[in-house]
Design a protein around this nucleic acid. Structure first.
Lengths: 348, 348
DNA sequence: ACCAGCTGTGAAACCGGTTTCAAATTAGCC
DNA sequence: GGCTAATTTGAAACCGGTTTCACAGCTGGT
């Protein structure tokens, strides 16, 4: 019924014979070598067309020692944040004639390591890493053993020309500042794991903004949690249970804020009337939530484009002067307003 | 500063020399051939370990004419629906020692064709297609020219043992029936493009359910649109503008329902008090929406697992008796209630 | 002791390209 | 017309594995 194993097995040999030239010449045509005569080129070209020739990727990769692939490590295959990153990167790399091999790290060390090893075994020409768990040393080691690495959203001093990052301290500062400018004075924050640089930096920005307004820093209004939805939920519950007064919460990312919103709503706290909330990342969900989530937008598409260009430069061993720091932008929506005059609800 | 081109270039030759055997024997050890002596195997193994040998993927693929990769065509890399599909498939294929190469079709013919051609050029061992635009003939042609194909969410008679599908007519019927059972009698529907089989089938189910309740079918309550958010918005506007009476809308998928919800809300129509709505797919967004969206769940993870097994069977040319039809499930949430007694708002 | 039958191993061909290097052709110039 | 230089092409080595096939070394039966 179905014919197996009859893949289009036209090889360079058949093309060569059909065009009456050597395999070397066919290869030259394939690779746009400038030395072949227009006449020969045409003959070979038409032989290829009429035979339906398709070069064997593996032979090419083996002979050239180039895979024409870039590896991308993301935290997860699902979700809008990484979806957008993958989409932008694939789009860009495709125009550069590269394939984008994506592997998911699932947020665990084991899995990240496996994903990276797998991509190395498939001999990607370069890797773009959005890594949570790999140590700086490991990343440097990968880079130095021959597969150039571009690091996303993380700054490693020894690889400073290969990191694409933004200013997390500024993000924390601007967010908090936005709340302050809206008249909030009791501002809580739910941070990500503080041993992670980005979480810590945003927290530092938060503290700095409070200082600038001469507001004492209250440890009870700071809850450290995981960057996931559940983390946001738990942290928010904890915040509510302290009985402390606050009119705004600055969340370490949008996902946490979504979880927090659910908990707040469940506890009868109105957002933003009773409590304003603010996230980070600008995931697509933000605009579907009621209220729309005010947040800081991470320019993922831009980062992806820079990363692709940088990766290609590293592969081709040409140096570049691409700007590696990207700018964040506060997106004002509905979840932040001036604090109401009404007595707060969460005083119990 | 950074050392280039010093990839781990240990080849089988070095290993062979170090272990004092031939390359053939090393290859045998690599491929778990049963013929090699335990003693020899150990010697080779330790040589590999101490040299840090990593076989060259391209050589292997070239020599074996097997890429150990399965290609997956999806509509988009972002979004929860395909994110989940990719995740489930990657998870399963990884356990089978296969890489899952994902390409996005962006919902256009051009792009789908390009994605498929690209995967063919990378010589995937099989392809799993979630295709909107490719014709049956094209898919059959791909399959018959040597790269076996598994078709997701679509039924092609000539490839009936390679299609994983569900009963769209039943989905349409059950959805409509659920609304009918809740007491709705004026039920509108927003369908996807009716030239697509799934959209048409669900519409057929809708009509059948109405017939079973002896309810006359009103063409004004049917709007055909695109499967996207915008499509849902436009169709809903059109529905409102007819001035017709309806207490429920059955949407062709969740995304359209989300768009519709926005429009309804904007028009002052309360959901579900004034109008109940119902979607299809069960994207993650459903539970974040207010009200939560009642919908039909497509068991993507299950489909992915079946697809992976089936693909492997096709590659290895073994026949299987896996069940290819999956069952859908209605998930009751908040967006459907019994119609209110109050006069409807959209009578203008 | 001899031969048949196994078993483990190695030599060499092969997968389908690229690349080096030398040869063949053409062109340029006096 | 003859010599050199530049251009185009082909033969063969190579990339790093797998696989076929032949052979050497054992085993065991008579």
């Amino acid at each position: 019924m179905l014919r197996m194993n009859n893949k289009n097995n036209i090889t360079i040999k058949e093309v060569a014979e059909s065009a009456g030239v050597s395999r070397a010449t066919v290869s030259r045509v394939l690779n746009d070598s400038p030395v072949v005569t227009p006449d020969t080129r045409a003959r070979v070209q038409s032989a290829m067309d009429s035979l339906g020739y398709r070069p064997n990727y593996f032979s090419q990769a083996l002979a050239k020692n180039r895979s024409q692939s870039i590896g991308l490590l993301v935290r997860s295959l699902g979700g809008h944040y990484f979806g957008k990153l993958m989409y932008s990167l694939e789009e860009k790399l495709t125009t550069l004639g590269q394939y984008c091999m994506v592997s998911s790290g699932h947020g665990t060390y084991e899995s990240e390591r496996k994903a990276v090893d797998f991509m190395l075994s498939r001999r990607v020409d370069a890797m773009i890493l959005y890594s949570d768990c790999l140590s700086d040393e490991e990343i440097i080691e990968i880079n130095n053993s021959g597969t150039p690495v571009v690091v996303l959203s993380r700054y490693i001093e020894q690889l400073k020309d290969q990191c694409i990052y933004f200013d997390d301290v500024k993000a924390g500062y601007d967010s908090t500042r936005h709340l302050l400018d809206n008249g909030h004075r009791n501002i809580a924050t739910v941070t990500g794991p503080l041993h992670k640089q980005d979480a810590e930096d945003r927290f530092l920005g938060y503290k700095k903004a409070l200082e600038d307004f001469d507001i004492g820093f209250d440890q009870d209004l700071v809850v450290e949690s995981s960057f996931q939805l559940e983390g946001g939920k738990e942290a928010t519950k904890q915040l509510l249970s302290t009985g402390k007064n606050f009119s705004a919460i600055y969340y370490g990312n949008d996902e946490m804020a979504v979880g927090g919103l659910e908990v707040l709503r469940g506890a009868g706290v109105r957002v933003p009337e009773d409590v304003s909330i603010l996230g980070f990342e600008d995931i697509q969900l933000c605009v579907y939530l009621k209220p729309n989530l005010t947040t800081i937008r991470v320019p993922l598409a831009e980062m992806a484009h820079i990363a692709a260009d940088l990766a290609m430069n590293l592969v081709n061993n040409v140096s570049s002067d691409i700007a590696l720091e990207v700018q964040l932008q506060l997106i004002e929506r509905e979840s932040v307003t001036r604090p109401c005059n009404k007595p707060e609800q969460n005083k119990n």
